[in-house]
Design a binder for these strands. Structure first.
Lengths: 126, 126
DNA sequence: CTAAAACCTGACGCTGACGTCAGAGGCAAG
DNA sequence: CTTGCCTCTGACGTCAGCGTCAGGTTTTAG
């Protein structure tokens, strides 16, 4: 598979894939002419990288954790890193849930004020 | 309250507070000599802003939503914005939970491989 | 064979939420 | 009065994850 196809299948840009390689996150074989070639498994790997990025991990951290995700083997240090990232994500979830609940309360209050007409509705009805 | 005290109480930097003012998120009265003065309520406001930043909202979006958080009144457009941000946060929570679960699985597998000695433990015991 | 599409390597641009430095003015304490 | 801390206004620096453009090669479709 070449880079364009991988980009489509993984839902990222070609530029992103080259960036991942630059960061050591995604290896690529090369054809004699220098074009990158990826195995099918690369799709899952890219998706995983995206998932970790979305969770707020940096390239460097992902680079440290990726091997042990695939080998299920980690040094105590890496294990500690894993646990710390897990806890961070957990805390982030808790915070986000609180924010969501707060927004829900605001939405409920604002909706009520609209339906009850207890606020001046000078906004356009169109 | 002056800016330094507010910064400490809200747990942010002085620079951040000036930035919030620049973005229109935080008003400030001025002493005749030009120093910013904040009421006690500013602490909560700053904390709220921080919470929204942490949820991935931009300054612009926060600026649009802050008034209706305090007035509990919103135009339909603003209400739609609120709902869309809420849903985005909800989706983010779902994704983060999946990532956390994946990390949990990795941690479990790696811990097992260590305790079972089923992997070469050539890492330093110190 | 040829034109279009895909790929290559640099390398600069972008964005947002601040950090940081410079130079100058205020403010309570001794 | 002056010492030392707080504050002020610019204004440039940072960092990460790419976007984008330039100029050239490779692969593919017809």
């Amino acid at each position: 598979m070449r880079i364009g196809e991988l980009a489509v299948k993984a839902g990222v840009s070609v530029r992103a894939l080259r960036y991942y390689e630059e960061q050591g996150l995604l290896g690529a074989a090369r054809t004699p002419s220098g074009q990158r070639t990826y195995p099918d498994g690369a799709v899952d790997r890219v998706v995983l990288v995206q998932q970790l990025y979305a969770a707020g991990l940096s390239s460097r951290r992902i680079l440290e954790l990726l091997p042990c995700v695939y080998t299920s083997y980690a040094t105590p240090q890496t294990l500690a890193l894993l646990a710390s990232e897990r806890d961070r994500i957990d805390a982030q979830i808790t915070g986000l849930a609180a924010t969501r609940d707060r927004l829900d309360a605001v939405i409920a209050a604002a909706t009520a004020s609209v339906t009850d007409g207890c606020a001046p509705n000078h906004y356009p009805e169109s």
